[in-house]
């Protein structure tokens, strides 16, 4: 029988940061697609060795509907989400997001909304759904 590992003491755990982001895209994207694009972007920018250090994890995603601004494109969809990464690598992970420009031939863009130390404060301060 598999026994669950005991949780590490707080001093031994990696320090994390949570990056809140906004994703604007055309067409349809699932959670898996978002994860794939971020990991792929990181692999292209830093390679397997660099990406391994980041501990990237997409924690949560919110679908925010379509673009409603008067001059905007009505086919655009909005999503917001939170990525978890190691505290020391937060700037490197942040640099990955603007390099992602396309998904399956369609345009997409990531904008960072902010960085926080907890999921709760990231949601409260930046996601605001």
């Amino acid at each position: 029988m598999n026994q669950k590992l005991k949780i590490l003491p707080p001093t031994m755990r990696d320090k994390k940061r949570y990056i809140a982001f906004e994703l604007i895209f055309q067409g349809h994207m699932t959670r898996e697609d978002v994860i794939d694009t971020i990991i792929e972007g990181s692999l292209y920018l830093y390679g397997a060795c660099g990406t391994g250090k980041f501990d990237i994890w997409v924690v949560k995603l919110w679908k925010c509907g379509k673009n409603t601004s008067p001059h905007g494109n009505p086919d655009e969809n909005y999503m917001r989400g939170i990525i978890r990464c190691r505290r020391e690598e937060v700037e490197s992970v942040r640099a990955v997001l603007p390099t992602i420009t396309r998904f399956r031939g369609k345009h997409l863009v990531f904008h960072t909304l902010g960085i926080s130390g907890t999921i709760k404060s990231a949601t409260k301060n930046f996601i605001k759904v």
Binding site: I24, L97, P98, T101, H107, V109, F110, H111, T112
Partner: peptide
């Protein structure tokens, strides 16, 4: 789609 946040 080509525009980026200054912090990014």
């Amino acid at each position: 789609y080509d525009q980026r946040n200054p912090m990014d």
